[in-house]
């Protein structure tokens, strides 16, 4: 064996170890969720759907999950509407201070969630917005909308302005141009943005932890509490379900974004 191929194999082995490290925690929760035991053995002594049953028949888990889904769905709709309109203004508009707005848009991605959580709690509590669906949707939309703007404005930037000019030239109004030309062409990016926004809301933990009420709590808050106080394999079952659903959604979003890109090769 030449020294080059030894180096190559060492490199691949090292990479493989890192990849295992990356995947290990994700891969471990699935077998754990199927374990018949209360404690987590690996490999599991047998297979059982016990914890899935426990999840599906526990009203507190189901209530929290449904609440999270509801918040995420509303957040998705709000972020797509607000984010797409904002992207059009940012990319095609005559906007003073565009760069400042673009910079501020990134703030929700950079500012530590704990600061947002406490600040929002202080703002929402006196108004009675904590623990309400309105409160959750408001702050989740603020946190999710940058993803929509990033993805949709990138798609708008790829769209040659001459297409809209051609539409106008051929007699269509601004609105018709947007509906018949721009929207169909950026639809995949809008869909991807919608998926990002949905997941950003559904996965959001820190802010949800602080503004959840006793009545309405998100599934992330429920999970956080259970991990701290009552580590049961039900969490593994719930996590596995969420991971599978997340991956399925992301595959859809990515496939749709890829389809929208001009073929490069």
């Amino acid at each position: 064996m030449t020294s080059r191929s030894i180096g190559e194999w060492a490199f691949r082995a090292a990479c493989l170890l890192v990849l295992v490290f990356l995947m290990l925690p994700t891969l471990i929760i699935a077998p754990m969720s199927l374990s018949p035991d209360n404690y987590l053995h690996f490999p599991p002594p047998g297979l059982s759907l016990r914890w899935y049953r426990a999840f599906l028949f526990a009203p507190d888990w189901i209530d929290a999950t449904l609440f999270s889904l509801q918040v995420a769905a509303l957040t998705m709709v709000a972020s797509v509407l607000i984010g797409t309109a904002g992207s059009v203004a940012l990319v095609r508009g005559r906007l003073p201070g565009r760069q400042a707005i673009e910079a501020l848009l990134l703030a929700p991605l950079i500012i530590p969630p704990i600061i947002v959580a406490i600040a929002v709690y202080l703002q929402f509590a006196p108004l009675g917005l904590t623990g309400t669906i309105t409160g959750f949707v408001l702050i989740h939309t603020a946190l999710a909308v940058p993803y929509v703007v990033l993805v949709v404005s990138a798609a708008l930037q790829r769209l040659p302005p001459s297409l809209e000019l051609a539409g106008l030239n051929l007699g269509a109004s601004r609105l018709t141009c947007f509906r018949r030309i721009v929207l169909p062409l950026i639809a995949p990016a809008v869909l991807a943005g919608a998926v990002f926004a949905f997941l950003a809301s559904f996965d959001e933990t820190v802010v949800s932890f602080f503004i959840s009420g006793t009545e309405h709590k998100t599934v992330t808050r429920k999970m956080f509490e259970d991990i701290e106080f009552n580590l049961s394999p039900v969490i593994a079952a719930a996590s596995t379900l969420f991971v599978v659903a997340t991956i399925a959604l992301m595959v859809v979003a990515n496939a749709s974004r890829m389809a929208s890109k001009p073929q490069k090769n």
């Binding site: 040659p160 001459s162 297409l163 000019l165 051609a166 539409g167 106008l168 030239n169 109004s173 062409l185």
Partner: peptide
Amino acid sequence: VAPNKRGIAMVFQRYALFPH
């Protein structure tokens, strides 16, 4: 007059055909 009310045609540099 607004561009969409002018009734004069234009052929664009890179055609600007609607790809969809």
